[in-house]
Structure formats: C-alpha cells, structure tokens
Design a protein around this nucleic acid. Sequence first.
RNA 1: GCCCCCAUCGUCCAGAGGCCUAGGACGCUGCCCUUUCAAGGCAGAAACGGGGAUUCGAAUUCCCCUGGGGGCACCA
Length: 480
Amino acid sequence: MRARFAPSPTGYLHVGSARTALFNWLAIRHAGGEFVLRSDDTDQERGSDEYYHDVIEGLKWLGLDWDEGIEMGGPHGSYKQSDRLVRYQEVAGQLLAAGMAYFCFCTPAELDERRKQAQAEGRPPGYDGRCRALDPAESASRRDGGEAAVVRLAVPRPGVTVFEDIVRGEVRFDHEHVEDFVLLRSNGSPTYHLASTVDDADYAITHVVRGEDLLSSTPKHILITTAMGADPPVYAHLSLLMGPDGKKLSKRHGDTALHAYRQGGFLPEAFVNYVALLGWNFGDDETVFTRDEMVNRFDLSDIQKNPAVFDNDKLAWMNGVYIRELDREDFITRTVPLIEADIDRPMTAAETETYRTVAPLIQERMKLLTEAPDQVRFLFIDELEYDAGSWEKVLTKPEAAPAIAAAVEKLGNLGEWATAGIESSLRDMLEELGVNAGKGLQPLRVAVTGSSVSPPLFESLEALGRERSLARLRDALERL
RNA sequence: GCCCCCAUCGUCCAGAGGCCUAGGACGCUGCCCUUUCAAGGCAGAAACGGGGAUUCGAAUUCCCCUGGGGGCACCA
C-alpha cells in the first residue's frame, strides 16, 4: 500500500487537511505501507513558501511521519509538481497523439457565456465539446501558428465511470456530466487534475484518501489514469468537517489553521485523538486511546459517511485528559516557557524549584497549556493585581477583614513554613473565629492570589513564602 | 439550474431485522467529595427527519419527500 498526502501550499494547513493527512497516515501505518508527501504547487499565483513550511511543520507537530517525498526524497525525483512540468506536458502530448485529447481554442469569455446559457436552459453546465470536432491537423497548425489553446481530454461519450470507494461503496458518474475538462492551460501549465493524476500513477500510489470535495472529480482522474495506460488507485473519500452551524468549516468559524491549535495550548496527541474520532470510532465505547492502539484498529472501511461537526469543547476536554496524563517533568518543560513569556523574564532557579511544587496542582485543573500563566502568575510578580469581581464578591464581606487579621496573627507566629503547619494553624483560626472554611479562607485566597479561583490555598501559601504571604495579607487589610 | 454524496441525543460515535425500555463520549442539569476552581464519583434530561413499502417483526432493507453537504473554472 502506498498513499500520499498532497497539499497545495496555497494556505496554512487547515484542520480539515490535517484530518485527511491523519487518516492517510493511519491507513498506511496500519497496513505497513509507504506514506508519500508531495507538494501540489502548480498554482503560482497563490502558493508561497510560508504556506509550504507551515504544512510541513504541522505534519511534524502532529507526529505524522512520511517515508518518501518532500524533505525525504525517493526514487521518483522531485516531489514538487513545479519541478515536473515537462512530464505533464509529455503526458498531454501522448494523449493528444493518441487522439484522446484535443486542442480547444474557445476563449474564457465564450466559455463563460455558453456555460451560463446551458445553465439557464437546464442543461449540464460543462464544456460543450465544440473544438473536439476540429480536424486534428488543422488544430495543430492553428496551435503552431501561435493561437492560444488549451488541451482537453476527449471524455468517451456515451460512457460511465464506476468505481468502488472504500468509504462510500459503489459510485457512478455518467459521462454526460463529465465535461471535456482542461488538461493543459494555454500557457502550457498543467491543471490540478492532470498533475495530480500523473503523479499518483508515476509514484505508484495505490490508495488515494482525500476529501469529499474531490469526489466528483474522481471520474476525471480515473479517465486520465486509464488513458495513460495505468491502473487507477483505490479511492476513499472522506466527508468534510463542518463548523458548529453545520456549514463547511472555514475562517468564519474562527481560526481553522492547525498552527492556531498548537499556539492555543493544545497537545498534538490530544488533537490527533480527537480528530480521529471525527468519522471513525475505536470500538468498545472508548474515546481516549494511544496512537499505537489507533494504528492497530484503524480501517478505512469503518469511516462514517456523513459530515462531522468539529466540536472545540470536546477537543478541549480531550486536551485536559492528555495534560493530566503528562508526567510531571514533561508538564513543567512545556509550561515554563509559557510562564516566562507571560512574566517577560526567565525564572530564577529558586522560582523554578517553587514551580515544581505547584505544577502538579495546576496540571489537574487545566484544559489548555496556555492557562498555566493565569494559574501561577501570583507567584512570580511583585505587584499583585486583584481581580475586581473577586474583590467585590469576597473581600467586601464583613467576615473578610477579621479573617485576614487573624491569619496574619496566626501565620506570623508559625514556626516552619510548610503546608501542613499552615493548614493546621489556619484551621485553628477558623475555629476561634467560628466561621466555616468557605467564609474564612476565601478572603485569604483573594488577598494572596488576587482571585477567588486559584490553586489550593495552603500549598499556594507555602509556595509564595512567609514574607510575601504576610505582606500580601497586610496589604489587603490596608486596602480594606 | 445540473450532477453526486449523506441522514440515530445539541455535538461526535455504537447500532449491519428481533439482544433497543436505542448504548458510550463531550456539553448540559442535580447530588456527593471539597478551602475556591478543577479533577473524580453518582444520578438525570436529551435522538432513530416525514411518508409509504417489504416482513410475524425495521433505527437497521427498498421507494418517495424533506433536510444537510459537496461539485459544476485555463483554483486546487
């Protein structure tokens, strides 16, 4: 089995494309075949290096490795279509010579007009085949005389293309609705249909796994392949990803670029796990599984036919699951840079040690890596900023000031500054004051962390240290 | 307009004629745990789009309708 992922670098790697890449990869790794990465960069207008690199980085981030192609090389020369223009022209020439393709001199304006007319009359809107009737010799001389012409495939009519799609089953297209499409543009460059199909044949691709948007182009690709004398690959068309409104996932649903997820604090493992669930299932009612387990069970024929809505909430939940599964060191390594970026300076050695003690506490309360700075910022800054809502809700209560004052008193006399001692002295304080934990401890939390939501209080106090903790409590008292 | 694809809780998936009083997950609601927030535990609300047909029996098969999606370029 040989499959390929062939993005066109005309945009950032989209989550939909990432899913296509993942399903290709899963199928290949399951079967033990080869995964080829190719760049379908025949669109000079819209393509760019930035997009090209974004695609490669995205695949690497997801951990979808390939065996041949871009950056890897392989037995087929270049894996960039822009390097293979002569090959496409060669194939077009062969089809021309064999009478399976012909020159078309119709101008874009004429085509446009006839298309509109056909549509208005309820006829298929495709090219009407006018130039197909031209005498080949005459066409060639007009062409040689410098007249602009495209090369079109002479689609056999009547006829029908039938193929067995792995996810959809038998699919058939009557050639009545497959126009004589363009192979080579008037400037000699190949269209996507030609280039992609020639490459699939040349690179001996056996399985083409791609989006449903290409389903109706498949007869064109099969026609080219057989005209070349090659065997068509097996196709698997994946339904598309939708936004929450049921419309095709696009910019208006927010950022659909894969790198936005990387930057947004998502773990690639979680992303992969979640996306695999869009149109596929692990069986056994399991939703969280490892990459190896996924590869073991994956089968293209199990893929769901209907479009799936991309649910950010479930992705975030999944991400939380994976964050909690990270081992402590890994979690620290991944979050320290985010915190340093937030406080705009490197952590000191002492701070790093402190962070090591609180990291497990915040690890279990996060869905996104990017939430780390908010959780621990109070440990790293001098001027605490109080959350206005928390202040209002907690510190303006009558029991707030007495609790803080009592805590200052108790903690000031505490011997060793450690969680256990802090807890017992504060519990004593609660008892003496006759208030419950909620009322008595929340003011301390806000005074010390700036917010009514924070990591556990006693541990936070220990991490903050005696001096700074007491200073913050006194400061809050003063403000009150 | 023409062609193609699809159709189970709000969402993602189970379900391939009786095992379905339709199962799991996210989200949602309630309770428990609890120093806040999470996490965790327990409970709950929540779906077979409609109509025909086949069958003793249909979420599962067939047809029509409706709805949704995709495509119809010298873009990919």
